[in-house]
Design a protein around this nucleic acid. Structure first.
Lengths: 327, 327
DNA sequence: GAAATAGTGTCTGTTAGACATTATTTC
DNA sequence: GAAATAATGTCTAACAGACACTATTTC
C-alpha cells in the first residue's frame, strides 16, 4: 500500500551520474532484458474436521486436514498439488493468496500468513517459477470446495507429519550436522467424497507419502537449515516441502499463541479445542493443564451441549477482551 | 536442489486433455506472455559493535548495527538502502542472498534466514520488483565493507527500534484493531567512518528516522497483520518496513533460541553476551538470571580477560555439545 | 447403574524475577 | 583503598506436569 514518502532533500531535483533527474530517469527506464521468474502464491489451507460419530456415545475424532487439488494437466498430471496461482502485476502476493483462497474455497474471512518463498532451480519443469507460499486456517465448516480451472478435483486430505529419524553428526570442520527426517502422510477416504462434489466410484482410499529431511548445519560461524525431499509419491512439484514447512510453522504458532482458535467454529467446548491442539501437535495433552492454559483465551457462554450421552459440556466462543494478546 | 522424484504411475506415459505426454507438453511449452516480476534478494545484515572505550576503566557500550548502502543512482538517489541484488535464473533466492552478502561484506560463514517476501504494488517506481528479504548475522569483526557497483558507499548504522504508541480499537464488526507504532532510527557517526574505506569530510552525523505501523486486525474469523510506513526520511523503497520486520524477527529469535551467539566473536565474556542481548532486545536484563539462562548455551574456557581495570572475567566460546538444541 | 465425558483440586519440581552479598583485579 | 566489574546465593511467586477425585448426564 503505502510505500513511504520519498525523500527529495528539498526542492532541487537531484541528478544522477548521467545528469538525469529522477523523473527523466524513470521516463527513460527500460525494464531490461534480465530474465524474470513467474511468482505463484501457493496455499496450504488447514482445517480440522471430525469424522462421523462412531460408536454410540463417544466423541468423534478430529484430524488435521489440508486441501489438495488433483492436477488435470502436465506437468505432474494426476498428482495432487496445493491450490495456487500466479501473482498479477496489479496485486500483492498477499492479495493473490486471498484471491486464490476465495476462488478455491469460497471462504473469505480466515487467517492468512506468508510462510516462505521457494525458489529451487528447476522446481517447475516448465519455466522459472518461484512459489510464495501461504498458510491459511479455516474453521471446520468452511468446507465448500470449488475446483478451479487448473484442476478437475479438490479434496481435503487427512494429514500426519511425524518424526521418523533424528541424527547428529560431528563435522570435520568442528560443527554439527543435525538431520531430522519426517514422514508426511496425506490420506483421503473416498467415503467422505461428498465433500468434493462428485462421488463417482474410484479407489476407496488415496494415500500420498513423502519423506522430508531437514538438515541443520551449525559450524563455527555459519548456520543454515535446508529441506530436502527424500521420497515423494503423488505430490506435485516441491509441495511436500511446502506442506512440511507449513505444519512446522503451524505447530509453532499453536504452541505459542492462540492461533488454533481460527480453526474453531462459533461455539465449541474446551474438549473440542483440546482435540484440535492434539491433532495439530500430534501428541496428547493433559486435560487439567490444558484447561488452565486455554481458559484465558476464550470466553464462556451460558450454553451447553445437549443429549450427548454423558454430562453436558459448556460452550465457549473465541474472543475475550484481550484478544490480540497472543505471542 | 532435489525437487523430488515425479510419480509417473508406472511405465505408461500419461496423456493430458490434448493427448500430449509430459515430454511432448514440455517440448511445446511456451513460457507465455504473462508479465513477470523481477525478484531481488535484499539483506538486513546485523552486527553488534562496541564503541571506542570511554572513560578509564569502564566497559565499552555495544550497539546493534545494520549495513546500509547509499544509492548512487535513481530512484531514491542519495537515500540509503539495504544491500541486495536480483535473483538469477540459475540460483535460488538463498544462493543469491549468500552471493550478495559475500560481495558486499566479504563474509561467508554467517547465519542467514529468509524473512519475508515484499510485493507491494509500486514499491519500486521503475518496474515490477518483489523483494525476498533475508536477515544475516555477522560477528563484530566481520566489518570489512566493500561497496558494490550500485552503491558509492556502505556503512554500518546504529539502530534503535522502539514502541512509540500502542492502541486498541473495537471495530463495528465486532473485532479488534490493534495498532502499534514503532520508531526506527538509524544513525551513523562519521567519526567511525574509517570502517567505510573513505573518510572525507562530510556531515558529522547522519540520522535516518522512520515510523512503521503494525496494524493487527482480528475479527470473527479473519486475522491479518499489515505493516505501513507512516513516515520515512532517507530510507529507500520500502526498506523501513523490511528492517522493522527484521528486528522483530531477530528479537523473537534471540529470546527463544541461542541465535545471539552468531553475533559473538570466538571468545567472549558473559557480560559481553549480555550486552548483545540487551542491545538487541532494547531492555536491561538482570545479571543473575541472565547467567543462569546463558550458561547452558556456551562453553567455558580457561582463559580470562586481563588488565581491564577490575576483576578479570572468564572467557567463553560458542558451542556446547548440545549446540543445535535451541528452539 | 453403567458408560462416558465434564470439570476441579492438589502436590511437586522447575524456573524467572528481584535483590543481596562476596570476590578480584587495576590504578 | 577506591572504582569497577565478576560471580554466586537465596527468597518468592508463578507455572507446568502429573495424577486423583468429584460431578453430571444419557441410555
Amino acid at each position: 500500500m503505502d510505500t513511504g514518502s520519498r525523500n527529495k532533500h528539498g526542492g532541487e531535483a537531484l541528478r544522477d551520474a548521467n545528469g538525469l533527474t529522477e523523473e527523466e530517469f524513470l521516463g527513460s527506464y527500460d525494464a531490461g532484458d534480465y530474465e524474470r521468474p513467474s511468482v505463484a502464491a501457493d496455499m496450504v489451507i488447514f482445517t480440522v474436521a471430525g469424522e462421523k460419530e462412531e460408536n454410540y456415545r463417544k466423541l468423534p475424532k478430529r484430524t488435521l486436514r489440508v486441501l489438495l487439488i488433483r492436477r488435470g494437466g502436465h506437468p505432474y498430471l494426476g498428482c495432487w498439488a496445493l491450490p495456487g496461482g500466479f501473482v498479477r502485476p496489479t496485486e500483492t502476493a498477499d492479495q493473490a493468496a486471498a484471491r486464490e483462497l476465495r476462488e478455491e474455497t469460497g471462504v473469505d474471512r480466515v487467517y492468512l500468513e506468508q510462510l516462505h518463498t521457494f525458489s529451487d532451480v528447476g522446481r517447475d519443469p516448465r519455466t522459472w517459477v518461484m512459489s510464495c507460499a501461504y498458510m491459511a486456517l479455516v474453521d471446520s465448516r468452511g468446507l465448500h470446495v470449488e475446483a478451479g480451472d487448473d484442476a478437475d478435483r479438490a479434496a481435503w486430505f487427512e494429514l500426519t507429519y511425524r518424526l521418523q529419524s533424528d541424527s547428529r553428526e560431528r563435522l570435520e570442520s568442528g560443527g554439527i550436522l543435525h538431520v531430522r527426517r519426517f514422514e508426511l502422510k496425506l490420506a483421503l477416504d473416498k467415503a467422505e467424497a461428498d465433500l468434493t462434489g462428485e462421488s463417482a466410484g474410484e479407489t476407496e482410499r488415496i494415500e500420498l507419502t513423502a519423506v522430508v529431511e531437514c538438515r541443520r548445519t551449525r559450524t563455527r560461524g555459519a548456520s543454515a537449515d535446508e529441506y530436502r525431499i527424500r521420497s515423494n509419491e503423488g505430490l506435485a512439484f516441491d509441495h511436500a516441502k511446502i506442506i512440511a514447512m507449513a505444519i512446522e510453522r503451524l505447530r509453532e504458532r499453536v504452541e505459542r499463541s492462540d492461533l488454533a482458535l481460527h480453526l474453531m467454529p462459533e461455539r465449541f467446548t474446551l474438549t473440542e479445542l483440546q482435540q484440535v491442539y492434539e491433532s495439530v501437535l500430534d501428541r496428547e495433552l493433559l486435560k487439567a493443564a490444558f484447561r488452565r492454559k486455554a481458559e484465558p483465551l476464550v470466553e464462556k457462554t451460558d450454553e451447553y451441549t445437549e443429549k450427548a450421552g454423558h454430562r453436558p459440556s459448556r460452550l465457549y466462543r473465541r474472543g475475550r477482551e484481550e484478544w490480540g494478546d497472543y505471542e
